[in-house]
Simulated assay, not measured.
Amino acid sequence: MPAPETLTRFIALVEQNAHVEAIEAFYTQDASMQENTSAPRVGRDALVAHESRVMERARTVRSKCVGPVFTNGDFVVIRWLFRFEFQDGTVREMEELAYQEWRGERICKEQFFYDPAQFAPQSPVASR
């Protein structure tokens, strides 16, 4: 079960848009991430590689946790809002729920729930 201070540090790192660094610091070596019902990506190295590719495509990223954060023992649910402006000028805004299982102070399993229609690129002028 993560300590409240650990969750605070994790959320702060993501809100600083240090997504790759958050994976490196807060996920187990054998961690998995799953997008909705897709097959999970497994292994911290694979998670870092995937996130690095996403972040390389972005010119700017804005990440915001919308509280409250729900915890129940080893399980945590976080509501996130993201805004990506990509190198080609397109903008993508999305809202998701991250359902996490923690092993001590690290995430061992995470599944994201979101509406895939949010991936439709928007023009640069469209924003919240």
Results as ranks from 00 to 15, higher is better:
residue 24 E to G: 06
residue 109 K to C: 10
residue 85 E to Q: 08
residue 103 R to W: 01
residue 105 E to D: 15
residue 118 Q to F: 05
residue 28 T to L: 04
residue 37 T to E: 14
residue 46 A to F: 02
residue 108 C to Q: 11
residue 94 M to N: 07
residue 56 E to F: 04
residue 69 V to L: 05
residue 104 G to D: 09
residue 94 M to E: 10
residue 68 P to F: 07
residue 5 E to C: 00
residue 41 R to H: 06
residue 33 M to G: 01
residue 60 T to N: 12
residue 55 M to D: 13
residue 3 A to Y: 01
residue 57 R to K: 12
residue 75 F to V: 03
residue 52 S to K: 13
residue 19 H to P: 00
residue 102 W to P: 06
residue 1 M to N: 09
residue 64 K to Y: 04
residue 66 V to Q: 12
residue 33 M to V: 03
residue 118 Q to G: 04
residue 101 E to Y: 09
residue 47 L to I: 11
residue 110 E to S: 12
residue 69 V to I: 14
residue 42 V to S: 11
residue 42 V to R: 14
residue 17 N to W: 03
residue 86 F to A: 01
residue 112 F to A: 11
residue 23 I to S: 03
residue 73 G to Q: 09
residue 21 E to P: 09
residue 101 E to N: 07
residue 105 E to Y: 11
residue 36 N to P: 01
residue 60 T to M: 08
residue 79 R to P: 01
residue 33 M to S: 06
residue 23 I to F: 14
residue 96 E to V: 02
residue 30 D to Q: 09
residue 76 V to P: 08
residue 118 Q to H: 06
residue 109 K to Y: 09
residue 79 R to E: 15
residue 46 A to I: 05
residue 33 M to Y: 08
residue 15 E to I: 08
residue 70 F to M: 13
residue 49 A to W: 02
residue 23 I to E: 05
residue 101 E to S: 10
residue 40 P to W: 09
residue 13 L to Y: 01
residue 16 Q to T: 05
residue 13 L to C: 11
residue 106 R to T: 11
residue 83 R to W: 00
residue 14 V to C: 12
residue 53 R to V: 12
residue 2 P to K: 00
residue 1 M to A: 13
residue 84 F to V: 00
residue 8 T to E: 15
residue 41 R to Y: 07
residue 118 Q to A: 11
residue 104 G to T: 02
residue 95 E to W: 08
residue 98 A to I: 02
residue 106 R to P: 00
